[in-house]
Design a binder for these strands. Structure first.
Lengths: 213, 213
DNA sequence: GTCTATAGCTAGATAGAC
DNA sequence: GTCTATCTAGCTATAGAC
């Protein structure tokens, strides 16, 4: 493949992001030292600063990448023109698949919600990944609002249902050991991922969707 | 009140726990320094070590206290002998009230799930608060299982519904800024706390509870 | 029970050779 | 682009006076 390596992307950069993603997901921003990241990549600590000016920049790029991955997964469901009930099920499927794909995603996404203080001591920060997150959330909320307005869903609060949806998916795949203990099986196993979809879809069908018959 | 101060509980101890609770909830175990805790209490850093042998001990006592508070709130619902559907609603009410009471609770509980690595570098640790958490979770799961067995609930997976219940409550009250943005109102306001109960109970009634009529 | 002083270590970040 | 060496500042924890 001659034209394969057109955009080398520095190779080290990608490796650093991978290692940092795994570590930040496990121990959070403050819990990870750059020494550990460098060691995991096989570089010296100083070399990291050639690719990312500060630790905070590295963290934010990790988060941005993760959220963009998730958004890509959910986009088809959010832009579908299928009936609202079907769209909601497509979204649940996509969300569950997206979170199950990388075990780091749910933890990083969840942490990002209440680690902003941790990650940025100074109050003035726009946060580069916020836009992606906001787009995703707005997509959820619009789907619910439109469904309610169209009479496809019961007259629920779009905000509260969005929160429930996030909790039921993002929390679930971030719960790791506790979740495994509760389910009695690994939450990331193919069986349990499929079961998660089934249970959530069933709950939403009888709990939210208005039955036409 | 003459017999009021029988158990002084060292007074400083309680203050330290309060300050630490607030800080750990905001920035996590690794994100908080004992210097900051001491400063918040109005003591010197060294004095903390008189009350708690290590930082990890302090963290674990904070967590234990928070989980015990929550368990106390949920106990009546879990030990009730009312019909299963009613018990489930009592539990949602109690859980929401317990989490809304102190804004620190949900964040600390959520963090405790995936900060065990962070809080204890060495793998061998029993974790003193685990028993309380396990009791709570088992209570949730038993309620659901019994309700399904008795035919009061649809034949859902007890584990998955427990996970959904946790996500819908604990995540919600840990979501702070994002949650406020989604709801368009402060999540800890009396209005939104009451609305949270209503929305969850409504979802469970039509989604889980078998209608007898 | 609280303090000052300090030990011992690691953190993020920089300088500058190669 | 990667390295060694180093800076400064922070951390947990201890020693020992009061």
């Amino acid at each position: 493949m001659p034209a394969a390596a057109i955009a080398p992307t520095s190779d080290s950069r990608a490796k650093i992001l991978d290692v940092a993603e795994s570590l930040f997901a496990r121990r959070g921003y403050a819990g990870v030292g750059l020494r550990e990241v460098a060691q995991g990549v096989g570089l010296s600590k100083s070399s990291l600063f050639h690719h990312f000016p500060t630790k905070l920049d590295l963290y934010q790029e990790v988060l941005a990448r993760v959220l963009e991955r998730l958004e890509e997964r959910c986009a088809p469901a959010l832009h579908s023109r299928a009936p609202h009930a079907e769209r909601l099920e497509l979204l649940v499927d996509a969300l569950v698949d997206g979170l199950a794909e990388h075990p780091t995603t749910a933890r990083l996404a969840l942490r990002s919600l209440f680690e902003e203080d941790e990650a940025a001591p100074h109050p003035a920060r726009p946060a580069p990944y916020d836009a992606t997150l906001a787009r995703l959330i707005q997509g959820f909320q619009r789907l619910v609002s439109e469904g309610v307005a169209a009479g496809a869903f019961r007259p629920v609060s779009a905000g509260h249902l969005t929160q429930t949806l996030i909790g039921a998916t993002v929390y679930h795949f971030a719960s790791a050991e506790l979740g495994e203990e509760i389910l009695g099986a690994p939450i990331f196993s193919a069986d349990q991922v499929a079961e998660r979809k089934r249970q959530l879809v069933a709950l939403l069908r009888s709990g939210i969707v208005r039955q036409p018959a």
